[in-house]
Design a protein around this nucleic acid. Structure first.
Length: 785
DNA sequence: CAGTGAGCGAGCTTCCGCTTGACTT
C-alpha cells in the first residue's frame, strides 16, 4: 500500500522531490502531456461544439499503465504538474485518465524545488482550475484548426508536405520581410573624420568628428581647412555612470548568449542544458522566469562574499518583462551555486560556466564608471571633435560576467584620456577621413530570431528550438555562411601639411551562421499573407492570448471563442481552395532574344527553375534549375538565360567529348565518363578546352597516385589516397585508418581488422538514426481498418 | 561527402506544447 502518490511532469524533478518528502511519498512523472488530440483528421468535432477527440499516444501508453497501477494502490494522489496553463491541463487529463475522484483530487503547485516550497504546497492543496484548463483546450484546438486546415491548402496550391502554423509561419515571415528589406536597401556612403592631436604635455589624444560628412567633395574641403586651422579644447566634462548586471538566464536569453559566446545552435544549447539538468547540476532549462529562490539568493550572497568580498554583493529581485510569461519555474541557475565547476563533456562545462557566471553576476554590485568628454573646436569650421574616455572606478559584476551584444559595431574600447585644460591649444599629428557605408539591417541568427519571437509573445520556451528546426526542415529557410564582396573605399589623410587620397579595399557583407529564406519560404509566405493575413499578423497571438486569459478568468466560454474564430476562418479556407490558382512564385522575365520565346521562373517539382518556351507549343519547353542563392524575385533575364548555356560542349579530347556543367558539388568537367571539379578561379560559362584538358590531366595524375596498395588475397580491397588522406576502400565502402598508422605498411589482416571494427560501430549508428526517423518509414504500413 | 538529380498512376504529408525515450530474451 502506498500512502501518497505525487505526479510531476519531469522524471528528474520527481527524483529530487522524492528526497524532500520522505518515506510516505512516492513521486512519479507523467513525462509531460499524456493525452493529445487524435492525430488523424482534425481530432475535433467541429459540428458538435468543437468537441475534442483526445487519445493517449502510443508512446505514452506505458506511462499511463504504470500510473494507473500505482493509483490503485495509493491512498492519496497529488497532482503536482507546473503552475501554468499547460500544467493545469496535464493535471486535468491525469484526473480523467486515471479516473480520480474530482472532489478528492489534490492539486498542488510550487515554483521552486526546495523542501520548504514543497512542504508548503502539500499543506495547501486546491481543486483543479477548470477555467485554466479550458484556456489550454482553446489554445490547443485553435492551433490544430489553423495548422491542419491551412497546411493541406499549401499541399494543393504550392507543394506537398509543407506546413503552416500560428508560430512557424510568423517566424518565416520575419525572415522574409527582413530579406526583402535587405534587397531594397540602398547603401549610402559618408565620411567619418578623426584627428590625432598632441597635448601641451606632449601626450596623444584621439578624437572623432561629432558629425558625418556626406560627400567626398565636402570632406576634401574640410580636410583642406584643417591644414590651416587652430584646434582648442573647448570643454571637459566628467560624468559618473554605472552599469547593472543582466537578469539570470531564461531559455531565450540562454540560447542567445550560448550562441554569441559559445557558438551553439539553439538546439545544441537545449541538449547540453538537458544533460546538466538531468544530472542535477542546473535547475529546469525551459523557463521564462528571471526569478531566483530565496535559497539561491542566500547562496549567491555567500559565494560572492567569500570569493570577492562584501562590497561586491547586491541582492536583486528581477521582474520579467516578457509578454505572456507564465513563470512556472525559476530562472536557469546552478543547483548549487558554490560549485563553480562541474564534470561532464566540454560543452557541458562551458555552458555551466556561463550559467554560473550569469547567475552570480546578477547578484553583484553595479559597475561604476567615470566618463570623460573632451570637446575640441576648429578655428575655421563649425565642426567639432570629441574624445570620449571611460574609466572603471569599481568593477562590480564586471569582475565575473559581461553580456555580449548582437551589434557588431560595438567595438569601441574606451580608455583613459590624457590630462588637458580648458582652452588649451592642440597641435594635430594627423587628420583622417575614412569613407564608410550605411549597412542594411542584420540578418537573423537562430538565437536572434528566438529573441524576436519572444518579444512578440509568440512561442514558448519548450518550442523555440523545435520551431527553428521545423522551418529549416520544411526548406523555408537555410542556416549558412555566405562570402562577402569586395568594396573600395577612400581614405583622405592630412599629415605634416600634406593631403593624400588613397583607395583601399575591404570585404563587406560576409555572413556567418545566418538564416536565409529560400524561394519556397518566400512563396509560401506570400501565399499566406494574401489569403490568411489574420493568422500571420504579428499581433494574432497577442490577440488570442487575451481571449485565452478571459477564458482562464471565467469570463468567456471556450467554444464561443473558438466558434467566433473558426466560422470566418473556415470560410476563407474553402474560398481559397476554390478560387486561388497554383501559387509557385511565377515571374515572366521577358523573351529570349535568340528564339523570341518567353522566359519565366517559378517553383517546379524539383525546386526553383527557369522555363524557356511555352507548354502548348509544338516544341517542348526547356527547363533549368536555379542555382543556390538565386532568388525568383530578383533573377534577371540574362542570368536566367545563362542557366541554359550549361551543359556546354567544349570540343573533343582523345576523341571523347569534353562537357562542362554545374552539379550538386559545383561546376565540373566531364570527359570519358569521368568528372573533374573546376577550380575556384574557373568559370564554367567561359572556360575553354585547353584549360579543361589541363584539369583532366591534373586529375589523372592525382588518381595515379591514388592507389597506395592492393592485395592479391582480395581484389576488392584497396588502400587509397583521398582528399582527407589515406583510407581503405572495400566493396564500395570506405573506412578510416586509425591515427598513427602508416598506410603503406598495412597488411591484409590489418585491413580486415579495421573493416570489421568499423562496420560494427557503423551498424550501431545506423540502427540509431534509423529509429529516429522511424515515423517516416513507419507510416508505410497499411493502417486502414 | 568518396561523387555530379529530373515528369502524376500510390498514399502520405500538417499544428503547438508538455516531456524524454531509444525493443530483446
Amino acid at each position: 500500500m502506498i500512502e501518497n502518490l505525487v505526479i510531476v511532469e519531469s522524471p528528474a524533478k520527481a527524483k529530487t522531490i522524492e528526497k524532500f518528502l520522505g518515506e510516505d511519498f512516492i513521486v512519479k512523472s507523467s513525462y509531460g502531456h499524456i493525452r493529445d488530440l487524435a492525430k488523424k483528421n482534425l481530432g475535433i468535432e467541429v459540428d458538435n461544439g468543437y468537441n475534442p477527440q483526445y487519445i493517449i499516444p502510443d508512446e505514452k501508453k506505458n506511462v499511463v499503465k504504470e500510473l494507473k497501477k500505482l493509483v490503485k494502490e495509493a491512498k492519496e494522489v497529488w497532482l503536482a504538474s507546473d503552475e501554468d496553463r499547460e500544467g493545469e491541463a496535464i493535471a486535468w487529463h491525469l484526473m480523467n485518465v486515471l479516473e480520480l475522484d474530482k472532489k478528492k483530487t489534490k492539486r498542488i503547485v510550487f515554483h521552486e524545488i526546495t523542501k520548504d516550497a514543497i512542504q508548503k504546497a502539500i499543506q495547501n492543496p486546491r481543486p483543479i482550475d477548470e477555467n485554466l484548463v479550458n484556456a489550454q483546450q482553446a489554445r490547443r484546438i485553435l492551433d490544430r484548426l489553423v495548422g491542419f486546415e491551412v497546411s493541406p491548402i499549401l499541399w494543393k496550391k504550392v507543394k506537398p508536405s509543407l506546413s503552416a502554423g500560428r508560430v512557424q509561419s510568423v517566424a518565416v515571415k520575419l525572415l522574409v520581410e527582413r530579406e526583402r528589406e535587405i534587397m531594397n536597401f540602398k547603401s549610402e556612403s559618408y565620411f567619418k573624420a578623426s584627428g590625432l592631436f598632441k597635448t601641451a604635455k606632449n601626450e596623444e589624444l584621439k578624437a572623432d568628428l561629432t558629425d558625418k560628412i556626406k560627400s567626398q567633395k565636402d570632406t576634401q574641403a574640410f580636410i583642406e581647412l584643417c591644414k590651416s586651422a587652430q584646434f582648442n579644447v573647448k570643454d571637459i566634462s566628467k560624468k559618473p555612470g554605472k552599469k547593472s548586471p543582466a537578469p539570470p538566464f531564461t531559455t531565450s536569453t540562454l540560447q542567445q548568449e550560448a550562441s554569441r559566446k559559445l557558438g551553439f545552435s539553439v538546439a545544441q544549447t537545449m541538449t547540453v542544458a538537458q544533460k546538466l539538468y538531468e544530472s542535477g547540476k542546473i535547475t529546469y532549462m525551459r523557463t521564462d522566469s528571471v526569478n531566483l529562490s530565496e535559497m539561491a539568493l542566500n547562496s549567491a550572497k555567500n559565494v560572492i562574499n567569500k570569493e570577492f568580498g562584501e562590497k561586491y554583493v547586491k541582492i536583486r529581485h528581477f521582474k520579467t518583462k516578457t509578454k505572456g510569461a507564465q513563470e512556472a519555474h525559476e530562472a536557469i541557475r546552478p543547483t548549487f551555486l558554490d560549485k563553480q565547476e562541474v564534470s561532464g563533456s566540454d560543452n557541458e562545462k562551458k555552458l555551466y560556466d556561463l550559467i554560473w557566471k550569469r547567475t552570480i553576476a546578477s547578484q553583484m554590485s553595479d559597475a561604476e564608471l567615470e566618463k570623460t568628454s573632451i570637446y575640441i573646436t576648429i578655428s575655421n569650421s563649425e565642426h567639432e571633435f570629441l574624445a570620449i574616455g571611460e574609466v572603471l572606478k569599481f568593477d562590480g559584476f564586471l569582475k565575473v560576467y559581461i553580456e555580449s551584444s548582437d551589434d557588431e559595431n560595438d567595438e569601441d574600447i574606451k580608455g583613459l584620456l590624457p590630462q588637458v585644460t580648458k582652452g588649451e591649444k592642440l597641435e594635430y599629428n594627423s587628420v583622417q577621413a575614412i569613407q564608410r557605408f550605411t549597412h542594411y539591417p542584420p540578418r537573423y541568427t537562430e538565437a536572434s530570431l528566438v529573441k524576436k519571437l519572444e518579444e512578440l509573445g509568440i512561442g514558448r520556451p519548450s518550442t523555440y528550438a523545435p520551431t527553428i528546426s521545423t522551418i529549416q526542415n520544411r526548406g523555408y529557410v537555410v542556416k549558412e555562411d555566405r562570402p562577402g564582396n569586395e568594396r573600395n573605399y577612400t581614405v583622405i589623410t592630412l599629415s605634416k601639411g600634406v593631403i593624400k587620397e588613397t583607395t583601399k579595399t575591404e570585404i563587406t557583407g560576409a555572413e556567418k551562421s545566418k538564416l536565409f529564406p529560400n524561394n519556397i519560404g518566400m512563396v509560401v509566405n506570400d501565399f499566406l499573407e494574401k489569403h490568411f493575413d489574420e493568422i500571420v499578423n504579428y499581433n494574432f497571438t497577442a490577440k488570442v492570448e487575451e481571449e485565452f486569459d478571459e477564458i482562464a478568468n471565467g469570463k468567456l466560454e471556450w467554444p464561443k471563442m473558438i466558434d467566433k474564430f473558426y466560422k470566418p476562418f473556415h470560410k476563407t479556407v474553402e474560398k481559397t481552395l476554390e478560387t486561388s490558382g497554383k501559387s509557385v512564385g511565377e515571374r515572366i522575365l521577358g523573351n529570349d532574344p535568340a528564339t523570341g520565346k518567353p522566359v519565366s521562373v517559378k517553383i517546379g517539382p524539383y525546386g526553383p527553375m527557369v522555363q524557356l518556351g511555352l507548354k502548348d507549343e509544338d516544341e517542348k519547353p526547356q527547363f533549368a534549375s536555379l542555382q543556390k542563392g538565386q532568388m525568383l524575385e530578383t533573377i534577371t533575364l540574362s542570368e536566367a538565360l545563362a542557366l541554359f548555356k550549361l551543359p556546354r560542349e567544349l570540343g573533343a579530347y582523345e576523341n571523347k567529348k569534353v562537357v562542362v556543367s554545374i552539379g550538386r558539388f559545383g561546376p565540373y568537367v566531364r570527359h570519358d565518363a569521368k568528372f573533374v571539379s573546376l577550380k575556384k578561379e574557373d568559370d564554367p560559362y567561359t572556360i575553354e578546352l585547353g584549360r579543361a584538358i589541363e584539369l583532366i590531366n591534373e586529375k589523372r595524375e592525382k588518381d595515379s597516385k591514388k592507389t597506395i596498395k592492393t592485395y592479391s588475397e582480395d581484389p576488392d580491397l584497396f588502400v587509397l589516397n583521398g582528399r582527407w588522406g589515406p583510407y581503405i576502400s572495400y566493396k564500395k565502402q570506405n573506412y578510416k585508418i586509425p591515427k598513427g598508422t602508416d598506410a603503406a605498411e598495412l597488411s591484409y589482416k590489418n585491413c580486415l581488422d579495421i573493416i570489421n571494427k568499423d562496420s560494427d560501430s557503423k551498424s550501431i549508428k545506423k540502427e540509431k538514426t534509423g529509429k529516429n526517423s522511424a515515423p517516416k518509414t513507419k507510416s508505410k504500413k497499411p493502417s486502414k481498418k
